[in-house]
Amino acid sequence: MEQLDDDLVQRLHEELRDSYDEELELELEDRSVDALAGLAAGKLAPSSSEERAARRQYFSELFRLQGELVKLQDWVVSTRHKAVILFEGRDAAGKGGVIKRITQRLNPRVCRVAALPAPNDRERTQWYFQRYVAHLPAAGEIVLFDRSWYNRAGVERVMGFCTDDQYEEFFRSTPEFERMLVRSGIQVIKYWFSITDDEQRLRFMSRIHDPLKQWKLSPMDLESRRRWEDYTRAKEVMLERTHITEAPWWVVEADDKKKARLNCIHHLLGQMPYQEVDHPAIELPPRERHDDYSRRPVPRELLVPQVY
């Protein structure tokens, strides 16, 4: 196992603190940021006052942006807008983290995630884009692709899962495919999450040493680490050949995960001319009561044991 120096240990502690933050965010609605920051810090080495202040600022801005995302969702439903948002980047670049923050407060029937597995034998014989088309949005929907058809330009190219002819055909077809989507009324937004060599190493080390994250490391992830330069070349070609006016690429600097999340969400909100939608005041109707009804007790054998 790799020997850990003091600086790396400190960075791993920061990564673990971030992990606690990620899980605690869902519980923040009814608690103060100060209390939860203290809880998270208590699990590990104490964090500085500057770190606690930065954490509070991050949460405050995250919640504000998530409130705007709710307004965006209402506007999408009201106007029957259709949007596809692609998230691409190296392994451990933070794509899943920002997708989680975007969808965290939204209706999954309006904003849903498409994370497709590797194609099966039948799908490999289909038109390349066919399995992605099935996940495109209807009116009033947003679809977030956690990786997308750009797999062919990245992992398939680097790992030799496609031929040279298939690779070149992808670059001929993709700009036209995306223009066709835009002409049909689907807005296409593409994000590449960019991290440095050192940052990816740190995040992989964090996954190795965190039992809750080890499942995220696949043999393909480890091989991608070895082929860093091959992925860099593939990414550069991809951005050059598929950056089109109708669906441009946007690069998110993602070495700082929290700043990357905030910057990406802020930018995403600026890509749609959403406005706050007025809703009628909600009033809870009185419950109807009937004298001829009495609630039956739940059989004890059906109850989940109260272990906690």
Rank of each mutant, 00 (worst) to 15 (best):
D5A: 07
D5W: 05
R11D: 15
L16M: 12
L24F: 14
E29I: 13
E29P: 02
V33G: 02
V33S: 11
D34N: 06
L36Y: 12
G38Y: 01
A40W: 05
K43N: 13
K43L: 14
L44Q: 07
E51L: 06
E51V: 12
A53L: 09
R55W: 15
Q57S: 13
F59D: 09
S60E: 15
L65W: 02
L65Q: 14
Q66C: 04
L69I: 01
W75M: 00
R80L: 11
R80E: 13
R80S: 13
I85N: 02
A92Y: 03
G96K: 05
G96E: 06
Q104F: 02
P108T: 00
V113E: 09
V113N: 04
R124N: 10
Q130C: 00
R131W: 08
R131T: 12
V133C: 03
A138G: 14
A139R: 15
I142E: 01
W149M: 11
Y150W: 07
Y150N: 07
A153Y: 07
E156H: 06
G160E: 10
C162L: 03
T163Q: 02
T163L: 04
Q166H: 08
Y167C: 07
E168L: 08
F170N: 07
T174R: 02
P175T: 09
E176K: 11
F177Y: 10
M180D: 01
V182M: 03
V182W: 01
R183M: 02
Q187G: 09
V188L: 07
K190A: 06
W192T: 10
S194C: 04
I195C: 04
T196G: 14
T196D: 11
T196Q: 02
E199K: 08
Q200N: 08
Q200G: 05
R207V: 13
P211Q: 05
L212W: 09
K213F: 06
W215R: 12
K216N: 09
S218C: 07
M220S: 09
D221L: 12
W228D: 12
D230A: 15
D230Q: 15
Y231I: 13
R233I: 13
E240W: 02
R241H: 07
H243C: 08
T245C: 02
T245G: 05
A247F: 06
A247C: 08
W249E: 12
V251I: 15
V251L: 08
V251M: 07
E253L: 12
D256Q: 06
L262S: 07
I265W: 04
H267Q: 14
H267S: 12
L268D: 05
L269W: 04
Q271G: 06
M272H: 01
Y274M: 03
Q275H: 07
Q275A: 08
Q275F: 00
E276M: 08
E276H: 03
P286E: 10
E288R: 13
D292M: 05
D292Y: 14
R296W: 08
R300F: 02
R300A: 13
L302N: 05
